[in-house]
Design a binder for these strands. Sequence first.
DNA 1: CCCATATAAATCGTATCCGATTAAATCGGA
DNA 2: TCCGATTTAATCGGATACGATTTATATGGG
Lengths: 152, 152
Amino acid sequence: MARSPKSAGKGRKLSNFLCFAIYSANLAFGRAYKPLLDKVGLTYTQYIALVALSDEDEQTVSALGEKLFLESNTLTPILKKLEQMGLIKRHRDPADERQVRLSLTPAGRKLIEQDLGESLIEATGLGDDFPVVQKTVSRLRDNLLRATNIDG
Amino acid sequence: MARSPKSAGKGRKLSNFLCFAIYSANLAFGRAYKPLLDKVGLTYTQYIALVALSDEDEQTVSALGEKLFLESNTLTPILKKLEQMGLIKRHRDPADERQVRLSLTPAGRKLIEQDLGESLIEATGLGDDFPVVQKTVSRLRDNLLRATNIDG
DNA sequence: CCCATATAAATCGTATCCGATTAAATCGGA
DNA sequence: TCCGATTTAATCGGATACGATTTATATGGG
């Protein structure tokens, strides 16, 4: 919850914390997606996982985790649910039985191709700044993770 | 997970989704704070709640919820934990027994005044852009919530 | 005064996150 | 070859989020 360097003295206010802006913006995105995702019976995280899986067939759980910044403890239950819903297939890699390979089913691919959330671009109110903000926040994330892993 | 308007055709890639940038940046902040907060025995959300409580004494749960964009279903367990740790006091308002009033204890205030997370400002790698990004993301959040509540 | 309505907080069930541990499979050096 | 170290998922427990419901209190019209 690092604060703005500007507010040095007393103002320990939430509104000056970048981490709170990110935290609350994440909640807001989840709520904005909710009505859209309810229609197809997906949660926010399930949808993000599906998008990442649409990128490439036969990914392992670890590879998916690297894209999503998550690990098997979080992903395994979500992936089992997606499989149970008929949106993905999971199977052990015959060449290395430790790994589980993941692929979208036709139903899963069809769902992703609907481009849910396209309608939310306008709701961000960012206009032409949209790609700039996206890149800035991604860089912020990468910087934080790098700093955390070096001296954490 | 609204995508950049630029990537119209095939690129349904996670890296083009603003909501994923926010989602993953939030995870990154949580991980960056973890070692700092572990030292004082707090979780990320508990810390955010404490900062919001330091703003004003005798807030109600609802008022705190408006600042944090959370409701009593999420806050009550967190507040009970903070009380149990001796960092806040909770008591029913005698003038309206439905409401619970919240205040930091001296221990709670002392903890907040340590300015944990100050060290993370540099880790964001944003430099002078820090306050700009903070305001942009806050505006994004407010726009999303407004759009969600109007036609959601 | 009485009760229907409204409001505030708490409770409950489901779905994430995450640290720590476990189980199974693979790998590598003696 | 054999066994310890490593790797990959999965499991488990604690702490959020959140929709839906419940409980307790307050309010207002008749």
